[in-house]
Design a protein around this nucleic acid. Structure first.
Lengths: 96, 96
DNA sequence: AATATTTTGTTTATATTATAAACTAATTTA
DNA sequence: TAAATTAGTTTATAATATAAACAAAATATT
């Protein structure tokens, strides 16, 4: 019991980003900023970590003349999130 | 949405310790060591943090001539854990 | 038309946290 | 009585999160 929790997901901000992506398919930088209230720098760093791990795809484009950074879960990321949630549930079960 | 997760509980080892205490009433140092496979030093540090926060009571005694450190949740700790779980569920809901 | 401001991020520096290694003290065993 | 075991604590290091500083392009202002 108490399986290890993927440290890449067991971080408040990265978990919030992934959580958003699990329910919204595609989300851009500003939506994350608005939803999480985190700073750009913090978000930028955490996005890179998730990307390096292969958990998300980062799509850079232009929208209304401005650069736009948009994110999507990869299959690997979805699997990792599901495993994380599965493992986490052992820690927060309240039944004896 | 995405309420802050109590950083004292959002740590794998401290969460495991508290999780154990939520289902077992009283647990000692060695039981934690066996269940979590963590090192004594790490456990010792995390216990102190939980104690400093007033989340657990630490009861030191002697059992079979050896010192024994036993832990129990406080009411404050129980409340904090319940809040943490409540907040965490927002992050890991899978329904759209 | 220059310059100031805003948008959209990245890079770097610092503070916090987790973890392991080293240490302490008492007990038991050879 | 010396070595090994039990039960932890303290301290040093590695990893992580976060904020501050910076950059580059677009738009607004005077």
């Amino acid at each position: 019991m108490y399986k290890d929790l993927d440290p890449l997901l067991h971080s408040q901000l990265r978990l919030a980003i992934v959580s958003l992506l699990m329910v919204h398919e595609e989300v851009d930088f500003n939506q994350i900023k608005e939803t999480t209230k985190a700073t750009s720098g913090n978000i930028s760093v955490q996005i890179k970590k998730l990307q390096d791990a292969g958990y998300i795809d980062v799509i850079k484009s232009f929208k209304n003349n401005y650069q736009n950074t948009s994110l999507k879960m990869t299959n690997k990321g979805i699997k990792a999130f599901e495993d994380y949630v599965q493992n986490l549930k052992q820690y927060i079960r309240t039944d004896k």
